[in-house]
Amino acid sequence: MADLSLMWRNTRMVVLCAISAALYAAVLVPFKALPIIPGITELRPANAIPVVCSFLFGPAAGWGSAIGNMIGDFFGGVGPGDVFGFFGNLFYGYVPYKIWRIIADGESPVSRSPATIAKYAITCLLASILCADFVGWGDNMLALRPFSVLGNLIVINNATAAFVLAPFILYEVYPRVRKGRMLYTDVMSEVTPPSRAASALGLAMLAVGTLGAWAVGNLVSTGYWIPSLIPPGMAQPPYDRAIAIAVTPFMMLAVAGVGLM
């Protein structure tokens, strides 16, 4: 994850980060008025922006997504849970380009071959679930909102925007940005990616951690399954401590995986 800190040394990446954040917030804020479940989440077509920006600007899109979401949160109420929203969105904007680099190896994301579409779907789905894990895990640990409500809504919201809207934007924008030499590979050419073995291990850890956290978070927050190691006193609604014990190892695995990628 060295690129996340290295990008701040590059003025053009700082500007691209601000532009990603502003674009995200500009689409996010008007839709704050159209909540799906008020106080939980709203219709978010803006969630296509971090995915598009990730393929274009790499690490700048990660920070841009986190900042853009923070700006949006100010208009729907900020709170302690927004710290997790910040990191969830950071990874939502950061992870797609990392996964794409490993599974597509320099291939253009706008190619319409079935293999490219499948790789794109895997990339967006993992990023969407990781973001949902972060927010659901954090908010349920703080006993603000249940993982099973928030986590699943975020997956649907993110994945819908990433599948329905993002490909069309990417199809139009990606070739132009590449031609203008504004892709992250052009702007930050000094960053060397880790070895293929480390990247593959990182991706496997990310997939296991992300999907594990999502499954366990859903089961524990609804009370369908509580791991036997959790004391009975903690296995009570709102399951805040149970979620902390059961989901945290998966989250750590996912973050460690991203670190290796």
């Binding site: 700082v14 954040a21 502003a22 920070w63 900042i67």
Partner: peptide, 19 residues
């Protein structure tokens, strides 16, 4: 950090322009 603070301020300023 100053650069992060600057990016946040710039994003706040640019968002209404993009809207």
């Amino acid at each position: 950090p100053y650069r992060a603070g600057f990016a946040i301020t710039l994003a706040f300023r640019l968002a209404p322009l993009f809207m």
